[in-house]
Design a protein around this nucleic acid. Structure first.
Length: 588
RNA sequence: GGCCCCGUCGUCUAGCCAGGUCCAGGACACCAGGUUUUCAUCCUGGCAACGCGGGUUCAAAUCCCGCCGGGGUCACCA
């Protein structure tokens, strides 16, 4: 459809909305940036973001930002501040109803990745980060990194670094975060204590929470009793029903206490409109009074998350399915504050390669992103692979560039079921990427691995090496194993290779071939091959009779690049030496 | 155990919301053949799945119920 026609149809849809008289808004434009609650589906991403901006249209609200200054088009571009999105229309919550269609596009999408720095970047976390990032890029939104580091013991600078560098490596650098800053900082929970404190006080003032004086011992006993009786687990709300005077007295005396959230006593349930799973519901009786503030005054994770997501104006929360039950608790906290919760989407978990539970570093070394870095998988291959775990563009397309990933990413193509880590697929995909790279790039990528072994390969040799192994390696690190024979002179010979050497006549033909090699130009692989063919013909034997023992003595293996490439890689002098060793082996 | 989520080839998945075009499509892996000096690449072909049982319907992988199986979660961890 031509752009003009498209715009027209948009106009046809929106103009009636815009000209509809709505009550004049006399209240000053509130500074809240949060969306007010609307009667229809606020959480519908598509409706929220698709309406294009209508240039020059004016809303009924008199606020100066209500005239749209930005031209048509929407959603695209690198400008995360929301270029192409009408900046002011419908900001006024009083007028929202009349402006709903336009209203949505004023709020840029904001997503976050919120890992806790535990010393490594989990591959599932990396996938979560990627999905968030893809959504942000797709919708012209903002990708925020927030450190959930309230657990001081585990929080080290090195652990934070690991996450920063891991994201950088994947090309998922945040738009806002501890390193890049931003208008909603600080971006580490450890630095936000005062904000939590303030909000806890708000909840206390509202009477949404109550102090709980139960000791850990009593809680443990309660739990043991419940388990023994096979009763429902959970706090029995003892302190919720304490006498007010009693509570005041204990507070006065400074009796240690936590603060618990008052869950509604009526049986009303909670509903999550999950963008991946649809409607998820829990009954009211299954909701307990969770602790919000520890006895030491430090707020608990669930409270911090809600406060942060709200304050940071996160519009969409994409996270692992293991948070699904937390979401109910968080929903309650949003309610207690009177805040509108964000859109939720719970991503399928990544299971161990054998399907044995979720991937954990303890059981699975492949849970750590570092491993893939160390093995030398191309970043783009890894990103492509990660995107494919739980998301499909269609049933066919699998190899996609980052741009294609962005263009095609969509939450409703995310599957709900957990997925085993498809490591085979990564090897294949990675090989695919490597084979499609320019040789020079392969050379550059394998170089550090070669150097790490103390081997030396400079320009001409390095390129030959890259060319020879490009179709054979599936990660750049493979070069170390596969090409060891090029550099190591004292390598064990493979049993299979030894067998080839021991074959009848092998030693003789090698011996006879040495003079031919002495005269050969090792850089002219084609000529060498032609000469070898002629040589075999003269002796009345097949090419294999020469090639197999030759390979066995020079590479000490039976598999590898084309033989004459192998010779070139090793160089004339060392080739001759190795052939002589081969002959010895053959005759011993 | 309670609650929640999930259930298509060995694996990752398309199809399910809007039932027929699906005796279920793609990819990886695997197997066979071809090309090749080996291996890899490349090409061709093959194997292989709707968890089970009811129901609704002319018709169900698709809708409903039950069962079974897998996973997650039940901390003053995040």
């Amino acid at each position: 459809m031509p752009a003009a026609a498209e715009e027209q149809s948009w106009a046809a849809f929106f103009l009636p909305l815009l000209v509809t008289p709505s009550p004049p808004c006399s209240t000053p434009r509130p500074s809240i940036r949060r969306l007010p609650v609307l009667p229809h589906d606020v959480q519908d991403l598509d409706r929220r973001l698709q309406p294009p901006c209508l240039p020059g249209t004016t809303t009924s609200c008199s606020s100066p930002t209500d005239t749209c200054a930005v031209g048509g088009g929407h959603g695209g571009g690198a400008d995360v501040s929301g270029a192409g999105i009408c900046p002011g229309v419908g900001r006024c919550s009083q007028c929202a109803d009349a402006l709903q269609g336009v209203f949505f596009m004023t709020q840029p999408l904001r997503v976050r990745f919120a890992p806790s720095p535990t010393g490594y970047l989990h591959i599932g976390g990396a996938r979560t980060a990627l999905f968030n990032w893809l959504l942000a890029r797709k919708e012209g939104g903002v990708f925020v990194l927030r450190m959930e580091d309230t657990d001081a013991e585990r929080n080290t600078e090195a652990a934070r670094e690991t996450i920063f560098r891991g994201l950088d490596w994947l090309g998922l650098t945040p738009d806002e975060g501890p390193e890049q800053g931003g208008p909603f900082g600080p971006y580490s929970q450890s630095e936000r204590a005062d904000l939590y404190k303030k909000h806890v006080e708000e909840l206390i003032a509202k009477g949404a929470v109550y102090p709980c004086f139960c000791t850990r011992e009593r809680l443990a006993e309660l739990r043991a009793k419940q388990e023994a009786e096979k009763a429902d687990l959970g706090y029995d709300r003892l302190c919720r029903h304490l006498d007010a005077a009693d509570v005041a007295k204990r507070l006065e005396e400074g009796v240690p206490h936590t603060w618990r959230l008052k869950a509604p006593l009526d049986a009303e349930g909670l509903v999550i409109d999950d963008k991946v799973r649809g409607r998820v519901e829990v009954a009211g009786k299954d909701i307990e009074d969770i602790i919000l503030v520890r006895a030491n005054g430090v707020p608990v994770y669930n409270l911090a998350v809600v406060v942060d997501d709200h304050l940071m104006e996160i519009s969409h929360v994409l996270r692992g399915e293991d948070h699904l039950t937390n979401t109910f608790k968080q929903l309650l906290i949003y309610k207690a504050f009177g805040w509108e919760p964000p859109v939720f989407a719970h991503l399928p978990l990544i299971l161990g390669p054998k399907g044995e539970g979720k991937l954990s570093k303890r059981k699975h070394p492949e849970a750590a992103l570092e491993l893939y870095q160390q093995r030398g998988y191309p970043t783009e291959a890894l990103v492509n692979w990660l995107a494919l775990i739980g998301w499909r563009m269609d049933g066919e397309t699998e190899v996609m560039t980052r741009e294609e990933l962005i263009r095609n990413f969509s939450l409703d193509q995310v599957s709900a079921g957990g997925a085993r880590l498809p490591l085979d697929k990564l090897d294949w995909l990675s090989g695919e990427y490597i084979r499609n790279m320019p040789v020079s790039e392969v050379a550059r990528a394998i170089r550090p691995f070669i150097q790490s072994q103390g081997w030396h390969a400079e320009e001409p040799l390095l390129l030959t090496l890259a060319e020879a192994f490009q179709p054979r390696i599936r990660a750049f690190g493979d070069i170390v194993d596969q090409a060891a024979w090029v550099f190591e002179d004292k390598e064990e010979i493979e049993p299979k290779a030894l067998k080839k050497l021991k074959k009848e006549g092998a030693a003789d033909i090698l011996e006879a071939y040495i003079p031919v090699l002495l005269e050969a130009d090792f850089d002219d692989v084609e000529a060498m091959e032609a000469r070898a063919r002629a040589f075999c013909e003269e002796r009345g034997v097949g090419l294999g009779a020469l090639v197999h023992p030759l390979r066995a003595s020079v590479t000490r293996r039976t598999a590898g690049p084309g033989l004459f490439d192998c010779l070139r890689l090793v160089g004339k002098e060392r080739v001759i030496r190795r052939i002589r060793e081969g002959i010895e082996r053959a005759r011993s």
